[in-house]
Design a protein around this nucleic acid. Sequence first.
DNA 1: CCAAAAGTGTTGAGTATACACCCATGA
DNA 2: TCATGGGTGTATACTCAACACTTTTGG
Lengths: 238, 238
Amino acid sequence: MSYDNVALAEPGVGRGRVAVRRHARPKVAVDTVLFAIDQARVKAYLVCLRWGPSAGKWAFPGGLVRDGEMLDEAARRELRESTGLEDCYLEQLCSFGDPNRDPKAHVVSVAYLALIDRTCAVHSCSPKYSNGQWFEVGHLPELAYDHAEIAAYAVRRLKSKLEYTNIACNLLPPSFTFAQLEELYGIVLGRVLDRRNFRRRILAMNLLKRLPLERRGNHRPAALYAFRQRSLQVIEML
Amino acid sequence: MSYDNVALAEPGVGRGRVAVRRHARPKVAVDTVLFAIDQARVKAYLVCLRWGPSAGKWAFPGGLVRDGEMLDEAARRELRESTGLEDCYLEQLCSFGDPNRDPKAHVVSVAYLALIDRTCAVHSCSPKYSNGQWFEVGHLPELAYDHAEIAAYAVRRLKSKLEYTNIACNLLPPSFTFAQLEELYGIVLGRVLDRRNFRRRILAMNLLKRLPLERRGNHRPAALYAFRQRSLQVIEML
DNA sequence: CCAAAAGTGTTGAGTATACACCCATGA
DNA sequence: TCATGGGTGTATACTCAACACTTTTGG
């Protein structure tokens, strides 16, 4: 590819033009869709932009990638600055590069999906933003840039990964009951699941280990489970 | 996100440093993995780099995205310049952003997957490259940058999409026999398929229409089929 | 009439779904 | 003892995989 010589090598592009262009290359940003389950709803964390032409609009936290920085490092850094989260599940979604997606400049955004197990884990909000808040997915406010598209993509990805990976472990506390797990699946997939069949299916995947503990409450105690691995595990379904 | 103010808003980064950084932002490139089936093998098109520290190494065709250019436009342009292809299936894979992936500069690459139905559709080779050639996937030469990783990702994506979309239509001529289709699946998936079961499965997906034509040859004539749609169609498997 | 590839059905195993009752606990 | 949620088994429909012979054509 020889990136450095590309402009010279491109047929039909004069040298004079190249010189001008050198400093008008697209920038790279990351934007992170952070999801958590709260009150039986999938929620996404949005920040309210303080500056620029989109000031006052809501968006996913993000920002420019620094020179020498890995993409996911950038995503983690922006997320930390906007939410105080030190560590969470993070996965790249897709890149969005419409030159008009940001009215001010050509910014290519690499979108990320992040998951945490409780909304209250989010504390601080960067001075970059005037506000930060959880919104129910499906009732998001009007979003800046092309973030509505990013949101739709993230929801689709979450749903599909729930079906063939152990990704759910990032939306639940370290130990949980089957009822909690089933509720999570029901909420995200948007349909009720048969308790017996659900339990069988999940156990067949062998993702869980039963803990020698029970959750005690007002009623019959419920066995607690944990995921065997917290790292992403894909279920083969040949 | 307010991209423009991000540097100022970042805590712990002094203003002096920011000024220096402004012109050292990562660049954006696209790299395209072009596949075709040839002689019962999956092949990928590689170009040999002429300039830069990786000169002499093979890589997927690609280059920097221009200001104001859509990502897929950039991928198509680079592909056109390197292969002469005017139009083909193109889909975004993933972005690769390791700052050390290119020894010369921090370049974030958005990888693309491209498919054509015959290797001989590739003609020209940009003066940017010293050579261009088809290689059997699985016997690729040593690749520049992180292109080996990109190659692995592209192969995985192709295999999985073959199973639940009509993507195969981009690897076949407009009309084809069931034997050709079955051969294609066998080659890409790397295993032999039962002819009767394969036919049943494919017909159940309802992706094909039977043409009122036959391919005549030395033996019994074979019915010709075509895909109903050439646009990407995802099969729901609830 | 022979070789070569095209085309076609059935059976059995395993998997997924639908469904209802008993259990353990705290109040 | 009752209300509440936790936990389990079975019968059936369906899907998927395995498998072999007949047909059509050109030479």
